[in-house]
Design a protein around this nucleic acid. Structure first.
Lengths: 227, 227
DNA sequence: CGACCATTTGATATGGATCAAGCGATGTGG
DNA sequence: CCACATCGCTTGATCCATATCAAATGGTCG
């Protein structure tokens, strides 16, 4: 039904020597940052595959990551986009339920789950953060469900507002992902996404400076579409 | 867009004197069962509303609960159905993101969140269970997303198989919820759900003994539709 | 029995998918 | 440096699955 273009390059793990890492991230405490080993992934590299055992969780340092699942007939659903500071691969089950790929060249912190769980067993604060992160992800996915029952315009508008909050430099949004990624995230086809964007441009709600760069001209119009 | 019928009866809280409760549930340890106060709700009673502060979490003892959200224009999305043994209302944020209602007369254990969190701070096992429950819910919601990108037949088939796993007595599924509930869960209209069921019946994949009682005649056919 | 509500069935409309072609940017080899 | 292939995106024409509107049926309860 939905076209699908996932360029599934072979799993590419580029181990860099683990070393203490001091980031400006505070969500997962200092000890945790220390546990993370930085790794780099080229564009479209697989970070982990659906069904692989979930031994690690990840935190984006630079770049963008998508998680996704491909149905038997090739339809792809993108579960989420993860930007610098975001944690992904957080599961309580044994195996990853989605696959994860680098959308663009990116650097992530890789954290051994067992070590983190062990630490959580000693440090209540870590345990609480682990729980909170999972809860945040839960809420994000619930919001995603609400997206999927809306009309195409509403989905695209919601998406733009969401991205604006996350990557905004003023009103300009620099999208790291392709139209196909957006389409598979929104449960639409690439054509519908494209058409909807031009529609919004014609209504001078947005401005497509380039295909990856979108300026929000009229946020309230977008918000009105938001639900 | 989607019709919506939520009979929003006034919030109905029927406090029963809290007393120790020993259930046959094991997911949330004994101390936790002890903390829960049993409460009863009549059909269609609101258990909590979206936006209310999430001071409690709940475990179904008997009956069925639906969580849902209503968009500005009246479209309703059902987030999930909770059967005996299931925990709902589990949030890490301050407020409930969905509303919860009793689908049928039901009894739930009400557990004070602050008490549980305090306990988790002392008991690592409780902390872990709290995390696991949230993770389970996360996975369930992720599966729900995958549902929403499928065709009507696939959604209904998936739904029937899911319910069969949860309430099956052999191949007969006794549905506690209305067609409207199902429709709002699957992101379809009530008419489409109904039509799809008769379609499956004509294909002798299922048998509609009564509108709430469905017999699965050909599970593999349903599984084939499942994705 | 009659009113009411849930469900099914029918007829028609429509939003988004599909199929197909065009276009602009980027990169490559001659 | 230019012709040409490639890739991502847009635009156009048509089709179809599901929504919408409407009515009939059936089951439940006073």
């Amino acid at each position: 039904m939905l076209a699908q273009t996932a360029v599934r390059s072979a799993s590419f793990k580029n181990p860099t020597p683990p070393r203490p890492f001091s980031a400006e991230n505070h969500e997962l405490g200092g000890a945790v940052e220390f546990m993370g080993a930085p790794m780099s992934f080229p564009r479209n590299a697989e970070i982990y595959g659906e069904g692989e055992s979930a031994d690690y969780l990840y935190k984006v340092v630079v770049g963008t990551v998508r998680t996704y699942k491909v149905l038997a007939d090739g339809r792809r659903q993108v579960g989420g986009f993860y930007l610098p500071g975001d944690v992904f691969g957080l599961e309580t089950g044994k195996e990853h339920t989605f696959s994860a790929e680098a959308i663009a060249e990116c650097k992530v912190l890789v954290i051994k789950r067992s070590a983190l769980v062990a630490l959580a067993g000693r440090d209540h604060d870590v345990a609480r953060q682990l729980w909170t992160l999972t809860g945040d992800e839960l809420r994000r996915v619930q919001d995603h469900i609400l997206l999927l029952i809306k009309s195409a315009q509403e989905r695209v508008a919601s998406f733009l507002l969401e991205m604006a909050e996350r990557v905004s430099a003023g009103n300009a949004v620099e999208l790291p992902m392709s139209r196909q990624d957006i389409a598979d995230y929104l449960g639409l086809t690439i054509e519908t996404v494209s058409r909807t964007l031009t529609l919004l441009e014609n209504a001078s709600t947005i401005e497509l400076s380039s295909s990856r760069r979108i300026v929000l001209r009229n946020r309230s119009a977008l918000s009105r579409l938001n639900a």
